[in-house]
């Protein structure tokens, strides 16, 4: 799309470069669904980019393509200057899904340790120190010996975040990580994610349904439109860092929330279809 405003990434070094990415899924009967069409996006190292759009517009698909969990039908995906596949082999990705996906036979500590167990190099003592540091960072230092089923949903998701970051991946991919949590927990975890992001300097791609969440967290918000999934607008979030509770009350914050909302509405040509989009996507 030529009308998409091209914003230069925050830094010279590119964490992610997507060019002409296209994805279609075969459907029974020989036809196919086009999930993504002509996606081009550059993300600089250390950026926090949110993907927002109605259900089924291809956000998860795009995230999975970046993470080399599925392959694009066409186009190129580069992560830290190498093909996505190589980046995965190099363990450049930390992933957090909507469900925590913890292993109930492992303690909190052992769940966070899992990626380190898979990767050679980290020695035992160093390993334990890193696990403890991560659990400290997400405020779970007192729960190391608990099992996942003994924790609340919000605490479980914090374990998942600690696990995703414990091996210091260059790129953190989060697919609606707080979508299943209540508003209060979600806001608290938003603050924690930003703390972790500031501390580790990881690049983050964050999929969400929530406009306030996207604006509060991001340096840029990528607005997507459905059928086929495209990038319809990219909005720079120029709120000062670090973001605090005051950020949520600032005038600029409300302006940006309105701007993102209108961008989402615009793709449907306003009026009735915009209301439908809000209902479908749970946006607003």
């Amino acid at each position: 799309m030529s009308s998409v405003p091209v914003t230069p990434p925050a830094s010279d070094a590119l964490a992610v470069r997507l060019a002409g990415v296209h994805k279609s899924f075969p459907v029974k009967g020989g036809s196919s669904t086009v999930a993504l069409e002509d996606i081009g996006l550059d993300i600089g190292t250390g950026e926090f980019v949110s993907l927002i759009g109605p259900s089924g517009c291809g956000k998860s698909t795009l995230l999975r393509i970046v993470g080399d969990l599925i392959e694009p039908t066409a186009g190129t995906v580069e992560v830290n200057g190498k093909p996505a596949h190589q980046a995965r082999i190099d363990r450049d990705y930390g992933m957090v899904f909507q469900a925590p996906v913890l292993f109930d036979w492992r303690t909190v500590e052992a769940n966070v340790r899992l990626p380190l167990e898979l990767m050679t190099g980290a020695a035992g003592a160093d390993r334990d120190r890193r696990v403890r540091e991560m659990l400290d960072l997400v405020g779970l230092a007192d729960f190391t010996r608990h099992h996942p089923h003994q924790l609340s949903g919000g605490m479980q998701q914090r374990v998942a975040i600690a696990r995703a970051l414990v091996f210091e991946p260059a790129l953190l991919l989060m697919d609606e990580p707080f979508g299943a949590l209540d508003e209060m927990t979600r806001e608290r975890l938003n603050g924690e994610v930003l703390k972790v992001w500031a501390r580790t300097g990881t690049t983050v791609i964050f999929v969400t349904h929530s406009i306030p969440e996207a604006v509060f967290l991001s340096t840029r918000v990528v607005v997507m439109s459905p059928r086929p999934g495209r990038i319809s607008e990219i909005i720079d979030i120029d709120l000062p860092q670090p973001r605090t509770e005051e950020t949520r009350e600032s005038e600029r914050y409300f302006e940006l929330v309105t701007q993102v909302r209108e961008a989402l509405r615009a793709q449907h040509g306003g009026g009735a279809s915009a209301a439908r989009a809000r209902a479908e996507g749970g946006i607003g």
Binding site: L69, R88, Y93, G94
Partner: peptide
């Protein structure tokens, strides 16, 4: 195992 658990392992290149 949950398919997402297997996906997680794939993301670690396990």
């Amino acid at each position: 195992p949950d398919p997402r658990a297997l996906e997680l392992m794939r993301s670690y290149a396990a």
